[in-house]
Design a protein around this nucleic acid. Structure first.
Lengths: 222, 222
DNA sequence: GCGATAATGTACGAAACAGTTAGTTTGTCA
DNA sequence: TGACAAACTAACTGTTTCGTACATTATCGC
């Protein structure tokens, strides 16, 4: 996990001649390959040999760094959550009106899911497994706390300004936003098949984005 | 050369009650067991031997009736969809006002997902596989046509009566309803873990049901 | 009551797969 | 430079698991 050796010693070789041993890069390489494989096939469907083939390294290294298939899976899941949370916190909402700020939160959530379908797929897989791997993660406990702070802030500002009605729970709001954004990605294949609507078409997605924003804004409006 | 083995082993039906052939019941027994297994573990995670153990019959029968693991999986998926569509069409909406009728559609969709979590889990699994099995199903093509007729009917009635605004697409409405109802089941484990809100508690679910109905009604209202 | 065929039981083969053994190469620092 | 640890490789192993071969039993039309 750490970028430094376990025993903190002076390092002499500050000139950085090219090294072929590059553990951090190897780890990242493995996690990237594993993310694609687990997202595509789920935990049971993913193949360690397949992941190894996609990397520049070997299967042995996967066990060297991650211990087991499940260890690797948990790492992949943690990094996926870390990434979306990091993106969420990067929004600059202070300068926007409550309504515009909320719209911006919804829009960026919508677009994130669209741009990173692997995230939704991993979350689906984790829920198939009843969240038992995520429950083991220490890291997740730290991330969650601030996850809805931005949303709470904008909602409370909207209530004070009179734009939003009182008495709503920001967490419920977050759940509704997530639900609407998640579905477009998570269920796009079955939905496209059953209703003959191509869920990847830009026109359809633009309409869904608009409808999603409108749905949320109407819900909080007076 | 004798036509029979030297010792013609005649296996008697030792201690067993006489067999009664009941293929239809056997099929249903297998599908029921397979539904639980596939919903719990996905397509790759499910074990044919495990399914066989859960039935009153043997693995041999699974292959006899369904040909392969994937054949059985598709059958399970088809029956799950047939079941929810059947439930949807059983609503009697004519006697309700447009707003009450729409609320009733949302409520019953919400409650169906809650009562049949296996459905959402199977749909998640199928989407992990990019809908390739569902796409093969002949049966699904027939079911879909009427799937949103009730919703379209009530929406158009609401527009005529002035209760709902014009210009909305019933399929978009259906998508929003599905998204909000699906999420409570599909993502309940990860959501509960991250936000420390028990998504199976009756109080939480009652609130979600109310919020979901309200969200949809506010969206269609003038 | 007989022959055809549908249904079922048992045991096993072959392939796939997670994880390991046994060893080699590379980098650091005394 | 040499000792030691970290980084890495290739081939192997034991088990799991889908699917099948072969044998047997029930049902039904005639």
């Amino acid at each position: 996990m750490s970028l430094q050796p376990a025993t903190p010693r002076r390092r002499r070789n500050l000139g950085r001649p090219p090294r072929t041993n590059d553990p951090e890069k190897t780890r990242q390489d493995i996690v990237a390959a594993a993310t694609g494989e687990f997202a595509a096939k789920g935990l049971s469907g993913a193949r360690i040999d397949e992941i190894a083939d996609r990397t520049r390294t070997s299967k042995r290294m996967i066990y060297y760094y991650f211990g087991s298939k499940e260890g690797l899976y948990l790492k992949v899941l943690e990094e996926a959550y870390a990434h979306i949370r990091h993106t969420e916190s990067a929004l600059d909402l202070e300068r926007l009106s409550p309504a515009d700020g909320l719209a911006q939160i919804v829009r960026s959530t919508f677009d994130y899911h669209l741009a990173h379908p692997d995230f939704a797929r991993l979350v689906m897989t984790e829920n198939i497994h009843e969240g038992k791997y995520l429950a083991k993660s220490k890291m997740i406990q730290r991330l969650n706390v601030t996850a809805i702070d931005a949303l709470r802030g904008i909602y409370e500002r909207g209530v004070r300004s009179g734009a939003f009605r009182e008495g709503l729970d920001p967490l419920d709001l977050h759940m509704s936003i997530s639900a609407l954004c998640f579905f477009n990605v998570s269920n796009r294949f079955t939905f496209s098949t059953i209703f003959k609507r191509d869920m990847s078409s830009p026109a359809v997605l633009a309409a869904r984005r608009r409808i999603t924003i409108e749905t949320i804004l109407r819900y909080v409006s007076r």
